[in-house]
Every structure is written in structure tokens, then in C-alpha cells.
Design a protein around this nucleic acid. Structure first.
Length: 277
DNA sequence: AGGTAGACCCGCGATT
DNA sequence: CTTAAGCGGGTCTACG
């Protein structure tokens, strides 16, 4: 679930919690794989007394920058979300990482599927360097997108999901953007005409902005559903046009939405609005 | 000929 | 049994 809009919502929430300026008191790791087996003790000695200077989104990563210049990355992957609770709040079995602050509030990673990752070592820079263009940045112009598409011979869907090309788009955003643009998910990137490229860019931006404005997309209601730090579910799920709508009529032309598999991911599209060529 | 780009498959926990 | 919002690693193939 956490795609760009959910990560942005999470970061926006974090900035409202007064974490900036606070120092780290202790880091506790309950599931070693979350940190790549760097122990809580090691993380504590690395970060103790360091103050949060910046928190921002980079693709689907949350980037924490401390006042000594050290950077760390948090990736929520499939089911991660953050909680911000007072010290001594009973620890849930899904809370695998806890960062205690000097005001005795604890930032906790809650992640039922345990795919989320926290990186504080020297690999941070390399991870950031691998990220492609941010779709919400000024640099994401029609010309920039055209170059990314036309210089490759790739199916649109895997291209949109490739974080080294565009950083932040996920499975929902890819399908929704392609529907908005009227493009087939398996269309070859190099075959797009100028107007189609502009339409794809508009589709991406329209979906991202709409989803962020609604606090993200929260599917289902189980443990793995997205809830931001403020415990609010997103509201964008009711606006989806294709994702999860197989067998239901296209909102544009009433043709039934189809589900296929592209890039090993469930892919929803309208066979009439999104022709292969 | 061989290097590269891109597609495809799997695993990773947990839940359903 | 099938479903899974993400990603990294491995393998295979096409390409000229």
C-alpha cells in the first residue's frame, strides 16, 4: 500500500508531531531483519543524542536527517506504518522497530508482513542514488518524461514501477494513471506520441495530487491496511477507476474492467479505453 | 562474441 | 486454494 501518496501523508504527519529538534534516546530492534541485522545497541550508539534536523520523502523512502549530518532511510514496503506513542505503551507484536525520543515519545514501525526496512549505515547514499526522477518535482516536465519513455523499449507498466526511472509510483498509481491517459499497460514506451506522453504525465500528476489530498489510498480494513501516523485512514480508495475493479463497468465507457498480470503484478485496465495501439 | 536491457520467477511474513 | 499496496536477486532471451 504505501506508495508515494501514503509515504507523503506519513511524512506530513511526522512533521506535525514535533519530532524535528528532538534527540534520539534509544533504538530498539525487535525483528533483526528490519535493520539488516544491525542491532538496536549499535543503532543506539550511532544515533543517541542526535537531533532530527529534517524529515522528507524520497521516492517511497522516508529520509531522516540528523543534526550531525547522518542520514537514515525508512521504507514501509507492503504493510508498514508508523505510530507515535508515549513510552511504556504496551508493545504490539507487529512493532519491530522503536525509536525513543528525549521527550519520552516513541516512534514505532508497525509492520505485520515484516517487509519494511530501516537503513542507517553507509548504504544510504547508494540507495538514494539509485532513485529516478521524482514525479512531483519541477524536473518532471513533459520533455523529461518523453526522454525517459522514448529512450527505452519497455512495457509501460514495468517502466512506471521501476524506481530507478521514476521514484514513488506503485501498482495502484501505475494502473490509475494509465487509465486516465487511455494507454494499455503493455504498450511499448518508445511508441508513444507527444500527446500520449503529455496525457500520461497529466494522469500521473492527477492521481498523485488527488490521492495525497485525500490522505492516501486505504484498501480493505485489516491489519495491513494503510493508516497514517495520526491513525487516520486515507480516502482515495473510493475514487479508483480500475484498481481492484475487475468485472465492473468502466466509468468512462461501461466496458468491463479486466485483470491481467504484467510485471508479475495484478494489472487492471479497460480493454476499450486502453487499446494496445 | 559478448555485454546489456528487459522480461520473468521467486522469496520474503502474515493473513485470508 | 488464491490474494497481496514492494523490492532485490537470479536466470533467461533478444539484440546485431
Amino acid at each position: 500500500m504505501p506508495e508515494l501518496p501514503e509515504v507523503q501523508t506519513t511524512v506530513d504527519d511526522l512533521l506535525n508531531l514535533g519530532i524535528i529538534g528532538r534527540a534520539v534516546k534509544r533504538v530498539t530492534v525487535a525483528w533483526p531483519a528490519v535493520t539488516g541485522s544491525i542491532s538496536g545497541q549499535n543503532l543506539t550508539s550511532l544515533l543517541r543524542t542526535k537531533k532530527f534536523a529534517h524529515i522528507r520523502r524520497r521516492g517511497k523512502y522516508i529520509l531522516f536527517q540528523f543534526d550531525n549530518g547522518r542520514q537514515s532511510l525508512l521504507h514501509l514496503r507492503m504493510s508498514g506504518r508508523l505510530k507515535f506513542v508515549p513510552l511504556h505503551t504496551p508493545v504490539d507484536k507487529h512493532e519491530h522497530l522503536r525509536i525513543l525520543l528525549d521527550n519520552d515519545m516513541e516512534l514505532r514501525l508497525h509492520d505485520p508482513r515484516k517487509f519494511g526496512r530501516f537503513t542507517a549505515d553507509e548504504t544510504v547514499k547508494a540507495k538514494l542514488a539509485r532513485l529516478g526522477i521524482d514525479p512531483l518535482s519541477k524536473a518532471f516536465t513533459r520533455r523529461a518524461l518523453a526522454e525517459l519513455l522514448l529512450n527505452r523499449r519497455r512495457q509501460l507498466k514495468p517502466l512506471l514501477l521501476d524506481q530507478s526511472v521514476i521514484a514513488g509510483l506503485g501498482n495502484i498509481c501505475a494502473d490509475e494513471s494509465l487509465w486516465l491517459a487511455g494507454l494499455h499497460p503493455q504498450r511499448l514506451s518508445a511508441s508513444l506520441k507527444g500527446e500520449e506522453i503529455n496525457g500520461l504525465r497529466s494522469g500521473i500528476l492527477r492521481f498523485l495530487k488527488s490521492s495525497i489530498a485525500r490522505g492516501g489510498t486505504s484498501l480493505g480494513n485489516g491489519e495491513q491496511n494503510f493508516v497514517s501516523v495520526s491513525s487516520k485512514a486515507g480516502g482515495n480508495q473510493t475514487r479508483l477507476n480500475v484498481y481492484g475493479r475487475a468485472g465492473r463497468p468502466c466509468r468512462r465507457c461501461r466496458q468491463l474492467i479486466q485483470r491481467i498480470v504484467v510485471a508479475q503484478r495484478g494489472t487492471y485496465y479497460c480493454p476499450r479505453c486502453q487499446r494496445k495501439r
